[in-house]
Design a protein around this nucleic acid. Structure first.
Length: 399
RNA sequence: GGUGAGAUAGUCAAGUGGCCAACGACGAUGGACUGUAAAUCCGUUCCCUAUGGGUUCAGAGGUUCGACUCCUCUUCUCACCA
């Protein structure tokens, strides 16, 4: 039983520091039912969760299965600094009510994956504000600049002469201090968080709280482009709140290579099962598209339902394999004769009439399934199905 | 505080008085081929009912027939010195 649990906990992780500690904690749980805490930090500014976040959340859920109490930390204080990435050095401070609102939205989304009864949501402003200037000062004495510069992005920026705000040095310290205050047994995060996660261990030692947290790092999930990490700002994400059709379609649009990555980090399938799928594709007994469809079905079903996932698949086939018009299209209406280019802009399918004209010229625009090439076309009264490219549809009623 | 270098479209990056709506690369997007995969090929990539007009090269002025290019000031970034 312990071995099964450990295997599940370790699955997909990029690196584990102090694996022995995790083993001990689980052992104690199986023996005496002893609980332990697992901490994970989240940014209060982005309450729209995407699959990249769920990699971490699923890991937390796995811990919950084996006795863990989750410390779901919302970094409302640290968000004022912004995790040093070289960009967004200073961020807007969020008002208390905004943070509460975001936190609520987190709850709505997070508890689709996590067990609420085994999760505690905490805000770090609560104890960091209580630190005061003296507390803050003594926190900074636990570390020095040379070691701070060991952090990869600090190192790069320092060497390349990009500015580093002093406040950015404080960020890892505060994140580490959170672990001191919460007395966390384990902290998990992405590989990009390694430095900060280790800071937790360092500070727990410095503050002599009698334990040092184990650290489990998950790989960063690549976005739809397969290169950059999944993020909202890069618009390469699959949101957990995405419509079933979108979710299904987005997953199907990833590359075959990336599909295996998603399988490993997102699927509930065991590693052996995934190996079998890989073999099947390699010796051509399985079509990669089928394998990808199954993944899309699994993920879509997880956040919606099996039924909705199935109908998303049916819809997808309808539109893309049979080139039919989707079932649900946004409807627009207007009065009098309209010029096509204008109509496309009004329906939000094109950003400008210039762009619309170009697309028409290139044969990207279809009306009622017929390609049109006349950019001067006027739409008289009637109903039209407008289409730009492969995926943009709208219904327009002209009176 | 002093001195010097720089700021160009989503990003990187050419352009040092007219040939500039601005080379190129990446990205994005359309088409072909497919499995809405990858790879590849060919387009497009400021706005405007448009063989023309308008607004752009950090911001504000100025010189000039004409400025992304020259001058002045402002803001920001970097380097060296203090």
């Amino acid at each position: 039983m312990l071995q099964v649990a450990l295997k599940e906990i370790r699955r997909g992780s990029a690196e584990i520091i102090d694996d022995a500690r995790i083993e001990k904690l689980l052992e104690a749980y199986f023996k005496d039912g002893k609980s332990y805490t697992v901490k994970a930090g989240f940014d209060p500014t982005a309450p729209d969760l995407h699959l990249g976040h769920t990699v971490l959340l699923q890991k937390l859920a796995a811990f919950q299965k084996y006795g863990a109490k989750i410390q779901f930390l919302i970094g409302d204080f640290t968000a004022q600094i912004g995790d040093p990435t070289g960009k967004n050095v200073t961020r807007k401070t969020l008002s208390a009510s905004q943070i509460q609102e975001n936190a609520k939205s987190y709850k709505d989304q997070v508890f689709k994956i996590l067990d609420a009864s085994k999760t505690e949501i905490v805000f770090n402003s609560q104890w960091i504000n209580a630190l005061g200037a003296t507390g803050m000062l003594s926190l900074t004495t636990t570390f020095n600049v040379a070691r701070m510069l060991e952090r990869d992005d600090f190192d790069k920026r320092y060497k390349s002469g990009t500015s580093i705000a002093i406040s950015e040095f404080i960020y890892p310290l505060l994140q580490g201090y959170d672990s001191v205050h919460l007395a966390s047994d384990i902290e998990i995060g992405g590989t990009d968080q390694k430095f900060n996660l280790l800071m937790g261990r360092h500070l727990q030692r410095a503050y002599e709280i009698g334990k040092e947290q184990a650290v489990l790092m998950m790989p960063i999930l690549e976005g739809l482009d397969g290169v950059q990490k999944m993020s909202k700002s890069l618009n390469n994400y699959i949101g957990v709140a995405d419509e079933p059709n979108d979710m299904f379609g987005k997953i199907l649009s990833i590359s075959d290579e990336l599909m295996w990555r998603y399988y490993e980090l997102l699927s509930a399938k065991t590693l052996q099962e995934i190996e079998l799928l890989k073999k099947g594709v390699e010796d051509t007994t399985l079509h990669p598209k089928t394998v990808k469809e199954n993944l899309a079905l699994e993920i879509t079903a997880r956040f919606h339902s099996q039924e909705l996932a199935n109908s998303a698949k049916a819809e997808f086939e309808k539109v893309h394999s049979n080139h039919e018009v989707p079932t649900d299209i946004e409807e627009f209406s207007c009065k009098g004769e309209v010029w096509v280019a204008k109509a496309l802009v009004d329906c939000g399918m094109e950003p400008s009439t210039s762009q619309a004209r170009r697309d028409i010229k290139q044969g990207a625009v279809k009306i009622n399934q017929e390609k049109i090439l006349d950019e001067q076309l006027q739409l008289v009264a009637g109903e039209y199905i407008l289409q730009v490219g492969k995926r943009k549809f709208a219904k327009l009623k002209v009176d």
